[in-house]
Amino acid sequence: MMLLNESLDVIRISAMWIVLLLLCYGVSLRLARLLKQHIIAHPIVITTSLMLFLSQFINTDVNVVMDYLDPVAYLLGPLTVGLALPVYNQLAVLRQLGFKVLIPILLGGILAPLSSYSVLYVLGAEYSWQMTMLTKSITTPFAMDTATMLGGIAGLAAVFVIITGIVGVMALPILNRVLRINEGKVNGLVLGTIAHGIGTAKAVQLSEQAGAFASLALCVNGITTAITLSVLLG
């Protein structure tokens, strides 16, 4: 009976945190609209800041809050599977373009992690940090597993992946202006290859075409990284 009461308590507190998360997300969407979708007002940044503030305000350990939000974290997996829809919708275009799409994805997929790894190596960061950095351009759940496999730190891998994604999303409009390139296909490839899931989420908002190319880049990048790593580990 006591065990049942304890589980009910966990469910109740978990539900409370999920409701708070949804409220924070609602506020961040409103704010983003008010600030005309300015990069600083990205819902991910605002929602996370509000949730961290709330956890400190209520005096609850962030680790504990993350545990209570586990159901939301789990749903990221099935949701990512839904990216098959934009890929399918653009399948004919993708089949026609072939290697013209694959080359930038493969190059970006190698360049992004290797260049950041090299920076940490040259600056003499710890081995575990270097290994963690290698995973920064893969989707979060996979990056965490791979980091552990390579002798890195799983939690830190999530942080690197997320920061990379946010930097990618924030830098895109600036690069669009500086390089004078602003095409749905190109934006999709850049976001999916470099900024993984967060970039793909942004691409889906930009246009159906950008979403499809980003989803494709995300999948191809995941596969090539898996192959590269299995070669490295084998």
Partner: peptide, 28 residues
């Protein structure tokens, strides 16, 4: 898919746990 951002928040909250490390290694 248009609300995918929401589902990243729990993972991103881990930033808080590594703030000391992040401050130490900020330049790298």
């Amino acid at each position: 898919l248009s609300h995918m951002s929401l589902f990243f928040v729990p993972a991103i909250m881990a930033v808080w746990l590594f703030q000391d490390d992040v401050i130490t290694h900020w330049l790298s």
